[in-house]
Design a binder for these strands. Structure first.
Length: 360
DNA sequence: TATATTTGACCTGT
DNA sequence: ACAGGTCAAATATA
C-alpha cells in the first residue's frame, strides 16, 4: 500500500537527515576550531540543521498520520498535551474521595526484568537494585503461586519520587523474580546509585530491617560498562509497557559531542525545548536489546544503572509520565546524553533503524 | 522513638 | 463482580 510513496518519503527524509548530520559535523568543527569560530557561521549551521530536521519531521508526520490508527504510540505522542490528557486531569485527582489516592496514570513507563536469586543464599526478597524501596503491599495474584509484593521509593514522602516496583516470584522457578518497575526515580538517592549492584544474601535482611539505603560497599562499585549508556550510539529502541500494552517508543539521538556543543551553546534551546529533549531522550535511556517484554538478568546490574547515570532523564520522564504529581524533578545534573527529541511526535517506529546507518 | 513491614480493607478499571 | 493496586492501622525491629 503506497509503498512507492513511502519509499520516496523515506529517501527524502534520509537525505534531510544526512544533510543535517553533515551540518552538525561542520558545526562541531566550528567549535573545535576556536580560532575560526564565528557566531554567524554557527548560527547559519544551526539554522540549517534545524531546517533539515524539520523537513524530515514533516515527512514523518505525514507518514504518521497514515499510520496513526495503527500505532497507539504515535497516536499518543501526536499531541503535545497527550501526556497529560492521557492521565487524569488535576480535577480528577482533587475529586478523589480519599486524598490523592488512585491517581490515574496510565502513561507511567513500565518495564520488567527477571532476576535470578541463587538458591541457598537466603535471599528471598526483591533484589537490591541500587535504589531504596519500601514495601507497601502484598497481594495474592490469581494463577500465581506466590504473592506479588509492591514497593515504592523510600523517598516518596520526602522527595515525591513516584517510582514503584512489583516483585513476583516465578511459579516455575522460585529463584526467579519478575521485577516490574513503574515510573522512574525523581529522587536523589546519591550519585553513587549508578552502581546497580546486586548483593544477594543481604537482600532479605535489608528488606526486613528496612535499611533500604544502598550500602556503602554496594555503592562504590563501578557500574559495568555495558550498562552505561552509549552516548554516541544511543540509537536504540526500548521495549516499554504502558498499561498492559507493550509499545515501542522510537527515539532519536544525536551523537553526544554534537549535542553537547549545541547544548553548551546555552540558551539556544529554551527551557521548554530542553525539557522536551529530555523527555524524548528518556525514552532511549532504558535501552534493552531484547524484544521480549522482559529482559532476563542474572546477577547483573539493572537498567537502573542508566537511571543513575541519566538522572536528568529520569526526572524528565517522570515529568512526562507523572506530570501531574512530580513535585521536585531533578534537573540540575548535567549529563551528556542529550537526545534531540525532534518533538516526540509522529515517529515511524521503523525510523530509528533507518537513521542508524547515518550515524555509524 | 523512629522507621519499616504486614495485612485487611478499600478503590479502580475491566 | 472480580482482580489488581493502594492505603493505613497494627505490628515488628533497631
Amino acid at each position: 500500500m503506497e509503498k512507492g510513496t513511502e519509499f520516496e518519503q523515506k529517501k527524502l527524509m534520509n537525505i534531510e537527515l544526512k544533510h543535517g548530520q553533515e551540518l552538525a559535523n561542520q558545526l562541531r568543527q566550528q567549535f573545535l576550531d576556536t580560532t575560526q569560530t564565528s557566531k554567524e557561521t554557527c548560527d547559519f549551521l544551526l539554522t540549517n540543521i534545524l531546517s533539515s530536521y524539520e523537513k524530515a519531521l514533516s515527512i514523518l508526520k505525514s507518514n504518521a498520520l497514515k499510520l496513526e490508527h495503527h500505532s497507539p504510540v504515535i497516536s499518543m505522542l501526536n499531541s503535545p498535551h497527550s501526556f497529560t490528557s492521557d492521565t487524569s486531569p488535576p480535577s480528577d485527582i482533587s475529586d478523589q474521595p480519599h486524598k490523592n489516592v488512585f491517581r490515574k496514570r496510565k502513561a507511567v513507563p513500565q518495564w520488567s526484568e527477571q532476576v535470578q536469586v541463587p538458591l541457598g543464599t537466603g535471599a528471598e526478597g526483591p533484589l537490591a537494585d541500587g535504589y531504596s524501596w519500601r514495601k507497601y503491599g502484598q497481594k495474592d495474584i490469581l494463577g500465581a503461586n506466590f504473592p506479588r509484593a509492591y514497593y515504592r521509593c523510600t523517598y516518596r514522602p520526602s522527595q515525591g519520587c513516584l517510582a514503584t516496583k512489583q516483585v513476583q516470584k516465578s511459579d516455575e522457578d522460585s529463584s526467579l523474580h519478575q521485577v516490574t518497575y513503574k515510573g522512574r526515580h525523581t529522587c536523589k538517592q546519591g550519585s553513587e546509585l549508578t552502581a546497580g549492584v546486586v548483593v544477594f544474601g543481604k537482600e532479605e535482611k535489608r528488606q526486613k530491617k528496612g535499611s533500604c539505603e544502598p550500602k556503602q560497599e554496594e555503592r562504590i562499585q563501578e557500574p559495568k560498562v555495558e550498562n552505561i549508556i552509549s552516548f554516541g550510539t544511543s540509537l536504540k529502541t526500548e521495549e516499554m509497557e504502558r498499561s498492559k500494552e507493550v509499545e515501542r517508543l522510537p527515539s532519536f539521538s544525536f551523537p553526544c559531542t554534537i549535542l553537547e556543543s549545541v547544548y553548551k551553546k546555552d540558551h539556544l534551546f529554551s527551557e521548554d525545548t530542553r525539557e522536551n529533549n529530555f523527555i524524548a531522550s528518556s525514552y532511549s535511556s532504558y535501552i534493552t536489546p531484547e524484544t521480549s517484554e522482559c529482559s532476563y538478568l542474572s546477577l547483573s546490574p539493572y537498567h537502573m544503572d542508566n537511571f543513575g547515570i541519566a538522572q536528568n532523564l529520569q526526572s524528565s520522564e517522570s515529568d512526562l509520565t507523572e506530570i501531574l504529581s512530580a513535585p521536585n524533578s531533578v534537573t540540575n545534573s548535567p549529563i551528556c546524553d542529550f537526545d534531540i527529541s525532534l518533538d516526540p511526535v509522529d515517529f515511524d517506529p521503523s525510523f530509528p533503524l533507518d537513521i542508524l546507518e547515518f550515524f555509524k
